[in-house]
């Protein structure tokens, strides 16, 4: 390619590198494919073992069974809802705060900016926050998924560094046209920030979709606010302790579908949204990662 003949040893190293990296890729993808195959495989047949990446006896029965679980459906609804609301709220508040902090002439900037930055270095800890949530009356409510996660200082700084890179003249000309600061934010800044907002939206959405500990901690008593991740967590824990995950609302024929198949099917349902959106959004993720790290 560069007009030079590559030495034999070069080619050998190339081959070794390709093999090592190919293996790494295989190890990464195999568990997903394995679980996918088992989730589509006939339950009785799975018990015999030996399923790798393709189902032996294809069936949809495992999925049909789990979609009869009421708690799972509730969990699915709540997870979708918290992801949508949480992302919209998170993106709007991070960009609004970033906009305010990017305005050099803002009087309170010197006061507010460190107030947010300082929180990166400490945390009240699990128990004081638990007590706070309790005292605010957020226990056993849907809002415990939204309100404590309204802002992330990290996201504020990512958006702010983006706004700082925009020409200030745009804001000034809007001002001359008589726009107030909110209009400038809404009409000028938000549309221009779209790439960075897409990035943080994805991070926030993934965070919401993946969290389970807040359900564990705050909504264990409120079955109507359960989330999908939490339900999966319960399924997995119940296997480890030997009991089976069951749903009282379903008359379950245990002989038809084994707990293992159920588990694999639920795992796939929980993972699928991420697998589906991931390839399209990869470039934003990577951009966000490098953006954030350059900042720090």
């Amino acid at each position: 390619m560069q007009g030079t003949i590559r030495a034999k040893s070069e080619i050998i190293t190339d081959v070794i590198i390709y093999i090592v990296m190919g293996l790494a890729g295989l190890i990464t993808i195999y568990p997903f494919l394995n679980v996918l195959a088992i989730s589509f495989n006939e339950s009785m047949d799975t018990v015999k073992g030996g399923i790798t990446v393709l189902p032996r006896e294809f069936t949809l029965q495992n999925y049909i069974t789990i979609f009869q679980y009421k708690t799972l459906l509730t969990g699915f609804q709540n997870s979708v809802l918290r992801t949508i609301i949480g992302t919209v709220v998170g993106v709007l508040s991070a960009s609004m705060m970033a906009f305010v902090l990017s305005r050099r002439e803002f009087q309170a900037r010197k006061l507010f900016s460190p107030l947010f930055a300082m929180t990166m270095y400490f945390s009240g800890g699990m128990i004081p926050i638990y007590m706070l949530i309790k005292n605010l009356g957020l226990m056993s409510s849907f809002w415990v998924y939204i309100i404590p996660l309204i802002l992330s200082v990290w996201n504020i700084f990512v958006v702010r560094s983006y706004i700082d890179g925009l020409p200030y003249a745009l804001q000034e000309s809007a001002k001359i046209d008589g726009a107030n600061d909110f209009t400038i934010f809404w009409r000028v800044i938000l549309p221009l920030c779209q790439p960075v907002l897409a990035t943080i939206a994805l991070f926030i959405a993934v965070q919401h979709w993946n969290s389970w500990f807040d359900t564990y901690l705050y909504n264990q008593q409120a079955a109507q606010f359960t989330t999908l991740q939490y339900e999966l967590m319960k399924v997995l824990q119940s296997t480890q302790s030997g009991s089976n995950y069951r749903d009282a609302s379903v008359q379950q024929n245990l002989a038809a579908v084994s707990p293992e198949s159920i588990r694999m099917a639920i795992t796939m349902v929980v993972t699928l949204p991420i697998l589906v959106v991931y390839p399209f959004l990869q470039k934003y993720f990577v951009k966000g990662m490098t953006l954030g790290s350059v900042k720090s």
């Binding site: 568990p31 679980v35 993946n210 389970w212 991740q229 999966l232 795992t267």
Partner: peptide
């Protein structure tokens, strides 16, 4: 991007 819940499931399956 996959949650620890899922990863724990995959690990114990493997």
């Amino acid at each position: 991007f996959v949650s620890w819940v899922v990863v724990a499931g995959l690990v114990s399956k493997m």
